[in-house]
């Protein structure tokens, strides 16, 4: 299954290369280091808040999961370096969406 197929089921996986074992991000059908095949690693990953801001009542942050960085929504004002987990994710109108707690 592809990263997107799992994401559309609400599951965030880390894509990695079957050959060189490096993380493949953005998700792709092959590794951007060695062109090897990609497999998905499942888990309850811990992320770290790198930066954040606020739009109206909602907060959004730049989060790092291992070597993957994404933008995600967060319901409460985070602290820099705070550990977070993916609480909800999916694909809405052809765009990824991520929420962390």
């Amino acid at each position: 299954m592809s990263f997107e197929a799992r994401l559309s089921e609400g599951k965030f996986c880390i894509p990695e290369c079957t050959q060189c074992k490096k993380t493949v991000w953005p998700p792709s059908e092959f590794c951007n280091h060695c062109f090897g095949d990609v497999q998905l690693r499942e888990g309850d990953f811990e992320g770290k808040v790198i930066e954040f801001s606020q739009q109206k009542e909602g907060y959004f942050c730049l989060v790092e999961f291992e070597s993957i960085r994404i933008m995600a929504g967060i319901s409460q004002c985070p602290k820099l370096g705070q550990t977070v987990r993916m609480s909800k994710c999916g694909i809405i109108n052809a765009s990824y969406s991520f929420w962390v707690v």
Binding site: P26, I70, M71, G73, S95, Y96, S97
Partner: peptide, 9 residues
């Protein structure tokens, strides 16, 4: 549009 790592942002 391609840059999906920005999620809904």
């Amino acid at each position: 549009e391609w840059d999906n790592s920005r999620g809904q942002y």
